[in-house]
Design a protein around this nucleic acid. Structure first.
Lengths: 141, 141
DNA sequence: CTTGACCCTGTAGTTGCTACAGGGTCCATA
DNA sequence: TATGGACCCTGTAGCAACTACAGGGTCAAG
């Protein structure tokens, strides 16, 4: 039974495009696999595990740099995991900030959309809300 | 007194980097201003208004393509504003989807961080949560 | 007349892929 | 044995939306 995989199989197993797998190799996130006589990449279970880790981390929104750091840490099994915790906490904080930003934005957009009177553009509250207001209109000559 | 502005002034007035102003001009979002004898860009109040509109729209998360569409619509003052409404609603829906995604993500991250026992990496629940689980461990030989 | 702040063009970098172009390999089927 | 199609290879360019130079020019103050 194959305990090596071609790049396409690896991609299907991890829901990753072939180009993306090669990209991860190029940027040094995934180690180079051995090659077959025909110069095809031949991956093993270690690669599969590593790529799964990468994809799961990416799905959780970690940047490639963070993933790289997490992978390095995951390899140092005896070290304390504070650094891991810190990366996760930092990312969590960033996600929470982003949610707050988007919620503020959502509220503004909701307000705009609610006020739209569906008349002519000249009376459109959305356009109005986007247009420079008092600060400019009241600019002293 | 100046009713024209150099690019740096325009940038300060709209909280936009000079390079970004030039970028907007390059991609046709902001019209080319007249030039001084020394080949400096000389902007007028119209440019200032337009750039303010762009920045405000960008702050609200509209893409440059959406901004372009909004600008076009804003110029057609007699037309009905349905298209404007549609862009805003579409964007609102996208923002709401994104918030939901991020909230799911936040919950997962919170769960991971909460479980971290601060021991060695080998016991780290965060790494564990990121690592490929049963699907692979249980893969039949 | 020089210093320093500002401006100019053009190009390349960022993030995380994705999409070719222009080939080579491999395997099954006719 | 030929051939077709699925797969693989490298290398490069593209996407959004800027940002950051390099290598110069302009202009006002001292």
């Amino acid at each position: 039974m194959s305990d090596t995989f071609a790049i396409g199989e690896l991609g299907r197993a991890t829901d990753t495009k072939v180009e993306t797998v090669r990209y991860y190799e190029r940027i040094g996130l995934l180690s180079q696999p051995r090659r077959t006589s025909g110069n095809y990449r031949a991956y093993d279970r270690g690669h599969l595990n590593r790529l799964s880790f990468i994809r799961r981390s990416r799905d959780l929104g970690f940047s490639l740099d963070q993933v790289r750091a997490l992978l390095d840490l995951a390899d140092q099994r005896d070290r304390p995991c504070e650094a891991v915790d810190e990366i996760a906490r930092g990312h969590l904080a960033a996600v929470e900030r982003k949610i707050a930003d988007l919620e503020a934005l959502r509220d503004e957009l909701r307000g705009m959309v609610r006020q739209c009177g569906h008349g002519a553009v000249r009376d459109c509250r959305i356009i109005e809300a986007l247009s420079p207001g008092d600060a400019l209109a009241a600019a002293p000559g």
